[in-house]
Write a protein that binds this DNA or RNA. Sequence first.
DNA 1: TAGATTGTTAATCGATTAACAATC
DNA 2: TAGATTGTTAATCGATTAACAATC
Lengths: 211, 211
Amino acid sequence: MQTERVSEAVIRRLPRYYRHLLQLKANGVERISSGSLAQQMRLNASQVRQDFNCFGGFGQQGYGYRVDTLLMEIKNILSLNGRHKVVIVGAGNIGQALAHFEGFEKDGFAVTALFDIDERLVGRDINGKPVLHIDELEGYIRENGADIGVIAARRSAAQEIADRMAAAGVAGIWNFAPVDVVAPVPVEQVHMSDSIICLSYKIAHRDAAEE
Amino acid sequence: MQTERVSEAVIRRLPRYYRHLLQLKANGVERISSGSLAQQMRLNASQVRQDFNCFGGFGQQGYGYRVDTLLMEIKNILSLNGRHKVVIVGAGNIGQALAHFEGFEKDGFAVTALFDIDERLVGRDINGKPVLHIDELEGYIRENGADIGVIAARRSAAQEIADRMAAAGVAGIWNFAPVDVVAPVPVEQVHMSDSIICLSYKIAHRDAAEE
DNA sequence: TAGATTGTTAATCGATTAACAATC
DNA sequence: TAGATTGTTAATCGATTAACAATC
């Protein structure tokens, strides 16, 4: 589809466009110009047009962009049309919270099973999803498939889980453990602590950050 | 402390330095050069030195950086020496998971209370922290203080919670609701969905992302 | 002292913003 | 057609990387 390499900065903006367009559509907005969209999202109109033109010309000169069309295109670019099977390794607090989170469902991410090493958790049922023993991970993935593997375990187990999930055939890894795992498939590191630490920095250096 | 404005890019790297230095110290490493540190963290040596020199000259020519000193300085810059009181609004899955998360404690973030509107949750005790009614938010904060307010509620309630927390005097807001809230204090948006959506993009465009 | 590595200035690179011809 | 707004090229800006004198 795109010819040139799309920069990380553009990729990070795509979900924001997606969310904003969903909102516009929900509000019954049918068309929007790069100028209005930029204003609403606190971006620059040129940037909006540049971003979209990484993937093709979705607009119409003199008119703007049809919200419908644009949303569909971006949904496609983000591969949010199909259903993505998700397995979670680690059925502790984070794993359970993710298994309960409704937000993923509407974007097509469906948690199918959780895995844990703790016998007290194995056999349980969290929000209708079974908790299986970690030893069954490879067998389960081979049999049922899994697009995304989530690491919701503690730091020391993270890399081994990443290795096993990648070997078993997941297409991508979403890592919540506070360590950068390496894998032959795309990995998204979440690093929740980094986020609150940045907040701590910004609070401490508030005057400098003032606009 | 610093004279010029520190860029967002540098700020985002600070927690990574912090984490890495903690690890080095735990491994008994006493000194490190910008070159080795850059290699380990997959950064550039010049970048590492530039980053540190935003805040002062922590190194010694011909020697490198003392891990101890550097860690202490970065801890200071990030304001991770004191204790930060954290209140969580929303005692659902995300709120509960955050209240259980041990990782925050060691960086000095202490959850003191949760708040919810659901009478079935109010009065409970999550990991030793009380769940209070949302009506008590302002009173509680005025009486006990709160440095950071966490929004773990649903989208529609997020902005109002932000307003109330800021008015009651929190110094910063950590927002898990899928909407950008605005406030007169620093805000960190987490946007978990954006993260898994970026992963979806990267999976779909794997060939292009290959290095 | 000689060697190593910083702090800092200069060069490069890439991302953002501006400008404007194309065209609906 | 005239007005509006895109797609795209050019200019600017800022961040990253390289270079090197300072100095431990």
